[in-house]
Write a protein that binds this DNA or RNA. Structure first.
Lengths: 105, 105
DNA sequence: AAACTAAGTTACGAAATGTAAGTTAAAAAC
DNA sequence: GTTTTTAACTTACATTTCGTAACTTAGTTT
């Protein structure tokens, strides 16, 4: 009875993007490379989940992790080319929200 | 320490779209008006959550609900104009996934 | 030696989600 | 006229995910 007529690539994309925090995290990183603590403070996400999501996005090659051997050590996260390619998606959401979403009511 | 420089409209849009199942549900309804049971079978979502999400999208005026007084009664769900306006977002995700996502690995 | 800092990790309670069975109302079958 | 059927939910409960706060690690400065 169940039909699977949805493209598996699209389904996987949705799985990643719909995972709580991921889209906002990518949006945040569109502004440029950022440190763990910066992202955490900007988004108001818990460290437990932030670490989890960064690992997920890293394993999907959407985010890259760089160790800066200062003291104490600093980690920088940035979008890969694959990650930057999501900009049009975020732009489309921004566009839609500017036309159709109002914060009242 | 926490900065909120994110547009509240955009933030609300993300809150709706990132809620599990919502994007897939909207994608499904882009194909046209559909009954509760059809959506349920196509997406493989539980009835508990489907009902909850449909009510949420209805209250956001993204989905409209129509009662067809047949026997037994049939309910049809369809996208509103606001809902249809999300098509470019879904198209952007589709486009990205076709270029960057591979199901292997 | 003690304190500090960034980036995590851990334990645990709270919230969201999935599962499966039950409800409702009307009419068709028996 | 009682039982069955059907679509769209609803409910109770188990499982999974998430948030909170405290803790860990390693290399400096104090």
């Amino acid at each position: 009875m169940e039909q699977k007529n949805i493209c598996p690539r699209f389904e996987k994309a949705l799985k990643i993007l719909n995972h709580r925090w991921n889209t906002l995290l990518i949006y945040q990183l569109l502004e440029g490379p950022q440190r763990y603590s910066t992202i955490k403070n900007q988004l108001g996400i818990s460290s437990r989940v932030l670490t989890e999501r960064l690992k997920e996005l890293e394993s999907e090659h959407i985010v890259a992790r760089t160790v800066i051997p200062s003291t104490p050590v600093v980690i920088e996260y940035e979008l890969t080319e694959k990650g930057h390619a999501l900009a049009p998606v975020l732009k489309a959401i921004e566009q839609w929200s500017s036309v159709w979403v109002n914060t009242e009511e």
